[in-house]
Amino acid sequence: MISPGRGPVPAAKTVTAPDQGSLPVLVARGLTKRYGHVTALDGTDLTLRRDEVLAVIGDNGAGKSTLIKCLSGAVVPDEGTIEVDGRRVAFRGPLDARAAGIETVYQHLAIAPARDIAANLYLGRELRRKGFAGWGLRLLDRKAMRANTRELLDSLGLLTIQSLDQAAETLSGGQRQGIAVARAAAFGSRVVIMDEPTAALGVKESRKVLDLILEIKNRGIPVILISHDMPHVFEVADRIHIQRLGRRIACVPTADITMPEAVALMTGASQPGPGHTQD
C-alpha cells in the first residue's frame, strides 16, 4: 500500500498477504496500441511474479517502450487489460500507476535539472509540515525530506554524492540514474520498472545500478528491466520476456536459455518452440 505523506521507507515492506503468495503481482493481457497506421503493440501479454526480476528484451520497434509506458500510465492502451494483485486497473496517467504502487525509472531521466537531490526525490509528493502550516499554508517540510533522502541514499550505498544541496545537473550520469533508481526504490511499493537504466552509463556506474536492481528485489519488490545489454540481462534477470513485432513471443527462465538463443528469438532468426512461453 502506498501511504501519501510518508517518507521513503528503507526497510523491506511486507505487502504480501499469505493467500496472495502464488498470485502474480502484475498481469497484462492483449495490450494493443496504435499510432495512426503504426501498430506499436499488437496484443502483448506480460506477467510479473513476486520476488523476481523480469527482463524485457526485443529489437528496436518491438514495442518494449510502449509496453512499459502502458504499465506505468504514461500511455493509455487502445485495447487490453492490466491487473495489479488480481485487481483490474485502468491508468489514465502516471499518477494512477504510482498510486497503485508502480514506480518507473524512465530512459530519458525524469529528473528536474536545476533542483537539488531531495527536491528531485520528492518531486510530485512533497512532504509538508504537520498541522496548520502543512494543510493551511502548504509549508514544505524540507528538514524531513532532507533527512529521509540522506537515510535512503545511505541505505542504498549512494552517499558518495558530496552534498545533498547539489543541483541534479551537476551530478554525473551515473549519480543521476542513482537518484532516479533511489526514488523508485523508495516509493515503489509493488513494482519497479526500469527502462534502459544502464544505457548511458560507464562500466562502474552500470555495476552500481545492477546492484541496486538486486537490492530492490531483495527488499521484496519485483522489478521489470528493459535492456539492450544481454550480459546485464543474463546477470540479474530471473526470467526473460522476449518482445518481437509488438507481441510477446517467448518468456523463459534465464537458466533455460542461452544468450545466442535469446538474440536469435529476438531478431527472428529462430522461431519459439513449445516450451518457450509461460506466464
Partner: peptide, 16 residues
C-alpha cells in the same frame, strides 16, 4: 512544481 516545469516539462509530467 513551477520550477520543475521550467527545468523539464516531460520530467515534471512523468513525476505527476
Amino acid at each position: 512544481y513551477l520550477y520543475a516545469i521550467g527545468g523539464s516539462r516531460e520530467a515534471a509530467r512523468l513525476s505527476g
